[in-house]
Design a binder for these strands. Structure first.
Lengths: 332, 332
DNA sequence: CTGAAAGCGCTTACAG
DNA sequence: CTGAAAGCGCTTACAG
């Protein structure tokens, strides 16, 4: 079956295609009578305007793209879900394209595939950021702040929250605290670690590089690396481990338990993110709540305002909250 | 900055736009010399063809849409991730739109938003399925089989696998087995339950409706409902619980442990899906491995073959495998 | 108020 | 081999 076009509707209603277009787009000039005739014809023919043609005329795609390395990990999945819902509600399409090669991204930007981009500064080099500015591609970053006329950010202050977490541990009597980080250069990890180290320094605790574990923010790797760490440091264990995200905290806890030790009896473990699906994980994780739902909504809202020219790029900071559960304890 | 169009390239290369188009699309008619001139001009101007215009001419959108109720739950997130990766690799765009109202879906189908659709039969009514057939919208379903010239399916035989799981439990000496289902009408849940019940019947075990728990395939709800179930049946507990998916198995295990009982000491618990991020969940879950990666790849491959007219719709069945871990035990 | 015409940026059959 | 022209399905400034 051929899809109905504006010509079919025009013919059926006995008017020109221009009139059909106006009637269907609520132009005030068309007579109620004509309008009704057009709408009836359109309905009886199951007419839906061709999206592509509208786009070509308007130059708009009504599409928002999310450029990310993955949507499988819980944080990304949650965020993508919230954004997809919000974007759909606002009448836009939601496109996901995963990090691969540079040219792919450039083609998407220059090829007019989207009205707005949601991305991570970490995945985009300077030259492309300049390109986004030059071509005024509306963009919202979600890992760290970039601000320009057409670029905004909705971010979480990982440094400050990382610092608060370590301050909390110190206040609970811990002085030997390990930290599980991701790769160097991963902004959230770097920032949380920086906050952690600053908190230690401010409390007069000397920094010990051997207490930094690289778990890549992945459960599996954190598990393995913590297992090695526990063997290596068996006579000199920390009393607490600050895992840079919840996923690694799980790996850390598994490794500690498997070594015959208890959490928090022998070692306190804290995470970061408060992932919803860990709700019933035992022991309940002391962590920092990162409001993913709020983030998703703010990102979409800010981006659509940029697209519609209602605002300039801004930097929006998300609140975060320390949540104390059973995986950590005071040793004072 | 204005984006470069084919006219800019034509001017710079000193040829017509027709020639530019041909040169850039590797038409064999154009002279190597002309071709080089065009390509150089295009490169120096950072030219990327406007996607929308190409689409309007070709009638193709090079876009594949995934229509689902959510991408937050791990299974969906994994599947979406694999599909996004595969779709990107094959040169298509990946669009996600979440289930909302009926008209939204219709607009997407008739409005020419996509070349192919990936969806769930459960989310689409008969009338719309007929519409997909009429307009020859290439579609691949992933929950249950529909086969037509332009419609295929890549499915998991939940009935058979559900049956096998219960047969395994019976072979381990269990005769009183509870089942945690989702809503009636959710195909996977219905099928797994049907397999479970058939296995019981074939083994000569009478069916006891009070052993069916509705956990909605959600961890939280399964936890609460199992808690209630354990209270209600405290003097008449089953020796095993078959949770229709891994997520509910987690909830079930939490509830059992919280009641002071052990898994599998007091009650064996088995799940379904073998979700990757439960890798280190304790006790390791006996479950059925549902090859999500394979499914994602097969779905995309079949859909693109349909789009490119290389095949008719087919029904592809995914293999599944029973994986025995610590959450279940033999009581013989 | 309605309609003919131009144009969005491409591709392609056709003429030269 | 190259280019002028038509056309994909819409919207909109303009004329009537």
């Amino acid at each position: 079956m051929r899809k109905t076009t504006i010509h079919d509707v025009a013919e059926k209603a006995g008017v020109s295609i221009a009139t059909v277009s106006k009637a269907l787009n609520n132009s005030p000039v068309v007579t109620p009578k004509t309008k009704k005739r057009v709408i009836d014809a359109a309905q009886s023919l199951n007419y839906v305007p061709n999206r592509i043609s509208k786009q070509l005329k308007s130059g708009q795609t009504d599409t928002i793209s999310f450029y990310t390395i993955s949507i499988a990990a819980p944080y990304f999945a949650n965020l993508a879900d919230v954004m997809a819902r919000e974007i759909g509600k606002r009448g836009y399409s939601f496109n996901i394209f995963l990090f691969s090669d540079r040219q792919h991204l450039i083609n998407n930007i220059l090829g007019n595939s989207m009205d707005g981009l949601i991305g991570f500064v970490d995945l985009i080099d300077q030259e492309i950021i300049q390109m986004l500015k030059d071509y005024r591609v509306k963009t919202v970053f979600i890992d760290r702040a970039i601000e320009a006329e057409t670029i905004g950010s909705v971010i979480f202050d990982s440094y400050q929250k990382g610092k608060e977490m370590t301050q909390f541990l110190i206040a609970s009597g811990h002085r030997k605290i390990a930290f599980v980080k991701s790769f160097d250069g991963v902004y959230d990890s770097d920032e949380r670690l920086r906050g952690h180290l600053d908190a230690l320094t401010e409390a007069g605790i000397e920094i010990d590089q051997s207490l930094i574990i690289q778990g890549n923010f992945i459960q599996n790797i954190s598990y393995i690396e913590t297992r090695n760490f526990l063997k290596r440091k068996q006579n000199d264990l920390p009393t607490a481990i600050f895992a840079g995200n919840d996923l690694s905290a799980i790996g850390v806890i598994q490794a500690i338990q498997e070594s015959g030790r208890s959490v928090p009896g022998d070692i306190s473990v804290v995470g970061f993110d408060d992932m919803e699906h860990l709700q019933y994980f035992k022991p309940g994780l002391t962590t920092i709540y990162n409001p993913v739902n709020l983030q998703g909504e703010l990102v979409v809202d800010h981006l659509i305002k940029l697209i519609e020219g209602k605002t300039q790029g801004q930097t929006i900071e998300l609140p975060g909250k320390l949540i104390v559960r059973e995986s950590s304890r005071s040793i004072i």
